[in-house]
Design a protein around this nucleic acid. Structure first.
Length: 752
DNA sequence: AACTAGGGAGTTTTT
DNA sequence: CTCCCTAGTT
């Protein structure tokens, strides 16, 4: 089978060069996923390389899944190469060899909020004033040290003031505690894997022989640790193919090191560099506009994307008077396009710079009855109730997890307050025991003291331990689902949620979340090969918001631009295009940060396939205060020839509902109630400043030659009329939009 | 020990 | 504006 015929010359070269290092500089929408998947298929089909000998590393689980799907359709083989994220690749290695590093096989993965909590408690224990060293600053210090593969001992010499010394101390204490808890944080996964491979040549050689062909996606986002890891893994065969785009590097703030891509040619001598510059995604207008923006960056490798696609619509730029008007404008445009271009809701995405901006848009989407899905913000598994239950599961899997103990020792309330917890923690600290063990010691002492009746807290502790022992035993022979159900039952978790004086809404959402959690366990049980608890816990630590994105669901997508990387949508709205928001005020201190913001803007713009809307407001409420922002500098960087000012409100708010009536189209909105069908009165009237009052022509006064104005298509002339009364259809030749056939009943035509 | 009210602070992006 | 933490009350 000749799969290479689907590729352009450059892509084919990239796919066919299977030996030696290859750097692919792939512009946005130039088919990089295609290249990687075809390369894997090519290796497999035409060179009979076994899937076991191929490693592909991606940035997100979603990208990995997409690749797996595409390879499946190419090779029809049921054997997959290992395609996964950096982090899960490391987990796989570490699960196998972590005992070499002194970890137990059932180590846990701490996510960033676990990391934060642990650091916070260390700072408290060290009696450091939070105002001098905040947990956040310590966290970012530790994380960036780890990103550059520096252990506490490596960071010592670099500083000598009080502040830096304390940071190193915190780092050192933190690392000890992680090990004591038998846990690793995200950065550890990389750092320990690198250490393992560096110090154990036999293990390295095992993986070198196993993974003979390595591919890395989104290479521009790799940090130093990931770079070293890749270098180690590719050391023997050097069949390394990395794909990246320096213009899409948007994670430098968390350690992504652009020099990994800029210096690839020096690090891997005699490498082949291939540029993919043909874009298959966007219209000429969108692509040229995006190019003109990113061209303002000085530090870039430089490439010029081109496309054979249509010219397309110009980019629409609209300035609204407030953030809720901006949201309303977007909603109305979406409805208009659903009607005028027969688009579906999953054609649309609304991007914003910060999560805080989503709220106003969400509110308006609900008011306008537009179903939407929002990504990012609080991760599902970060919700209180989920974290609580997961904490029980974690302890069952790894009784050394003191962090989870602290979390749930008094959830539900067992009469164990801070003073008793302190006592236990002190015992644990003195004896070096885990909290679990320390509680058992503590209870023994209470027992031998022979008091007539134990205190409420002591009773609670004994009950707690009894429960955990019982659950641990249960977990040996039962499924995760059963154990979780027992946790909920025995802790009376739901009763406690209801008993708290929380709003009905909150009770509902928590109940809903717990239900969703249970069904995610079922899903895991069904789809995973290994249904052990530790694999489940790994999975929920490493899953992210975007991973649940499903392009087939008929809903509008709301997400930050960061989350949009790697995705594409026919119609994209970028909101809040204002100085101070985008570029963000905190990112405006130096040119490097501005350049990163500009790349972010480039990423956002190049997600759009057919239409791109940029919106901003004249004034906006931020934290309760009205602010007047200037238009974003990125707007000014788009030449006028690719952009037009869109000051026309889509003046037909019920067009969307009519389409629903026409197509008998039904959709479900987030509140799960059905759409109201067909009536314009279901729209509350808004004061929208420059919106015209809507009038519907009932009498038929149109004839051939009548000049008309359409709210969306603009000015035109009637060239034909058919039918009568309600069924009248007119054919209009519009100046800018060409010839359209319209139903007089539906189109809001005005006589001029 | 548990709950409540009130003040203060902090607001980017997340594998 | 909203969340989170603290201090004070029951």
């Amino acid at each position: 089978m000749d799969i290479l015929k689907d590729l352009n010359d450059k892509q084919r070269e990239a796919v066919e060069t299977i030996n030696g290092p290859v750097l692919i500089l792939a512009g946005a929408g130039s088919g990089k996923t295609r290249v990687i998947t075809y390369r894997i298929a090519h290796l497999n089909i035409n060179y009979e390389v076994s899937p076991e000998n191929i490693l592909a590393v991606t940035f997100t689980n979603k990208a990995a899944k997409e690749m797996k799907d595409r390879i499946l359709s190419l090779t029809r083989s049921d054997q997959f190469p290992w395609i996964n994220t950096f982090h899960s690749t490391c987990v796989r290695v570490l699960r196998r060899y972590c005992t070499v590093l002194g970890f137990n096989r059932n180590f846990l993965i701490y996510d960033s909020s676990d990391q934060y909590n642990l650091i916070k408690s260390i700072i408290e224990e060290m009696r450091i004033d939070e105002k001098v060293i905040s947990s956040e600053s310590a966290q970012s210090f530790i994380s960036s040290a780890k990103n550059s593969l520096k252990w506490p001992s490596d960071t010592k010499q670099a500083f000598n003031d009080y502040w830096s010394e304390k940071l190193v101390e915190i780092y050192s204490a933190y690392q000890k505690r992680l090990k004591k808890n038998n846990a690793m944080d995200f950065d550890d996964l990389l750092m320990y894997t690198v250490e393992l491979l560096e110090e154990n040549p036999d293990i390295l050689s095992y993986y070198n022989d196993k993974w003979q062909y390595i591919m890395v996606d989104e290479y521009q986002d790799t940090n130093h640790a990931q770079y070293e890891l890749v270098k180690l893994l590719a050391a023997k065969h050097k069949n390394l193919c990395v794909v990246g785009d320096d213009d899409q590097s948007i994670y430098r703030w968390r350690g992504a090191d652009l020099s990994n891509i800029l210096n690839f040619e020096k690090d891997f001598l005699h490498c082949l560099v291939i540029r993919l510059e043909q874009n298959y995604r966007s219209t000429k207008n969108i692509l040229k506009a995006a190019n003109s923006v990113v061209m303002n960056n000085i530090s870039r490798k430089g490439k010029t994307l081109w496309t054979d696609n249509m010219e397309g619509e110009k980019i629409h730029y609209a300035t609204l008077s407030s953030e809720s008007e901006e949201a309303l404008f977007i909603c109305r445009k979406i409805k208009e396009l659903c009607y005028s271009e027969k688009r579906q809701l999953n054609d649309f995405a609304i991007f914003y710079r910060t999560n805080a901006q989503s709220r106003v848009i969400e509110d308006m989407m609900r008011r306008e009855s537009l179903p939407y899905d929002i990504f990012g913000g609080l991760r599902f598994y970060d919700r209180k109730e989920i974290k609580d239950i997961v904490a029980y599961l974690r302890i069952i899997s790894n009784p050394k997890d003191d962090l989870s103990f602290e979390r749930i020792i008094n959830v539900p309330p067992r009469g164990i307050g801070p003073s008793m917890l302190d006592k236990i923690k002190n015992t644990a600290k003195k004896t070096g025991l885990s909290i679990y063990e320390a509680i058992k010691e503590f209870l023994k002492e209470v027992d031998s003291a022979g008091k007539a009746k134990p205190s409420k807290g002591e009773e609670g502790l004994a009950e707690f331990i009894k429960l955990l022992d019982w659950l641990t035993d249960l977990a040996e022979r039962s499924s995760i689902l059963e154990v979780t159900e027992k946790v909920l039952e025995e802790t009376h978790y739901m009763e406690n949620v209801i008993a708290k004086k929380t709003s009905r809404e909150e009770v509902e959402s928590r109940t809903e979340n717990i239900r969703e959690f249970l069904s995610s366990i079922e899903e895991f049980d069904r789809s995973s090969e290994d249904t052990s608890l530790k694999i489940f816990l790994d999975q929920i630590s490493l899953i992210t918001a975007v991973d649940k994105y499903d392009e087939n669901v008929e809903k509008v997508t709301l997400m930050t631009i960061h989350n949009a990387k790697g995705l594409e949508f026919p119609v994209v709205f970028m909101s809040g295009m204002e100085e101070g928001i985008f570029p963000h005020s905190l990112s405006s201190v130096n040119e490097h940060e501005i350049e990163e913001e500009r790349r972010l803007c480039y990423v956002g713009m190049t997600r759009a396939k057919e239409r791109l809307f940029l919106t901003n407001t004249y004034r906006r409420r931020i934290y309760g205060i009205e602010r007047i922002n200037l238009p974003s500098r990125f707007i000014r960087e788009i030449p006028a020839e690719f952009m037009e000012i869109d000051n026309g409100w889509p003046a037909e708010p019920d067009a969307y509902d009519r389409r629903i009536a026409e197509n008998n189209y039904r959709a479900v909105r987030p509140g799960s109630s059905q759409f109201s069908r067909g009536s314009a009165s279901s729209y509350p009237s808004f004061k929208t400043g420059n919106q015209r009052e809507l009038t519907y022509e009932s009498d038929n006064e149109f004839s051939r030659g009548t000049k008309v104005l359409h709210p969306f298509f603009g000015k035109g002339t009637v060239i034909d009329i058919k039918g009568e009364g309600e069924d009248t259809k007119v054919t209009v030749s519009f100046i800018n939009a060409g010839v359209k056939k319209l139903s007089l009943k539906i189109a809001n035509l005005q006589k001029l």
